[in-house]
């Protein structure tokens, strides 16, 4: 289990206990969080699971692969700290991760 904090654009915080092996996107969807749409269901094909990673955590996640990088071009409001949450697999090391959700995925 890892504890992940999702912060919506208006500051609302959700702290979830997420099973190792789940994606950051799947946990958000299973808990019906607003802010992650995930239209493609994690196929790295829609960019509607876009999130911003808290700077302190960015280096721990490693670099996105070519498919995620390619898809990020379609994310609305992408920045240097952007990732697609369906591609972020939860590990014990990510206990305490903080992700910020954009105002809109479209």
């Amino acid at each position: 289990m890892a504890q992940i904090t999702y912060i919506e654009h208006d500051g609302t915080e959700h702290m979830l206990e997420v099973e190792v092996g789940y994606s950051v996107m799947q946990a958000a969807l299973d808990n019906m969080l607003q802010g992650i749409v995930a239209e493609c269901g994690g196929a790295c094909s829609c960019a509607t699971c876009h999130c911003y990673i808290d700077e302190a955590w960015l280096y721990k996640l490693g670099k996105p692969d070519v498919i995620e990088t390619e898809m990020m071009e379609f994310a609305v409001g992408a920045r240097d700290t952007s990732r697609l949450s369906c591609q972020l697999q939860v590990t014990e090391e990510l206990d305490g991760l903080i992700v910020h959700l954009p105002e809109s995925q479209y």
Binding site: G21, Y22, S23, Q26, L29, V37, A38, E39, G42, C86
Partner: peptide
């Protein structure tokens, strides 16, 4: 969106693994 999210909760990448 509603149906696709329901299907993702059922057969999304992490759950199906």
């Amino acid at each position: 969106t509603k149906i696709r999210q329901a299907l993702t909760r059922a057969v999304g990448a992490s759950v199906i693994e």
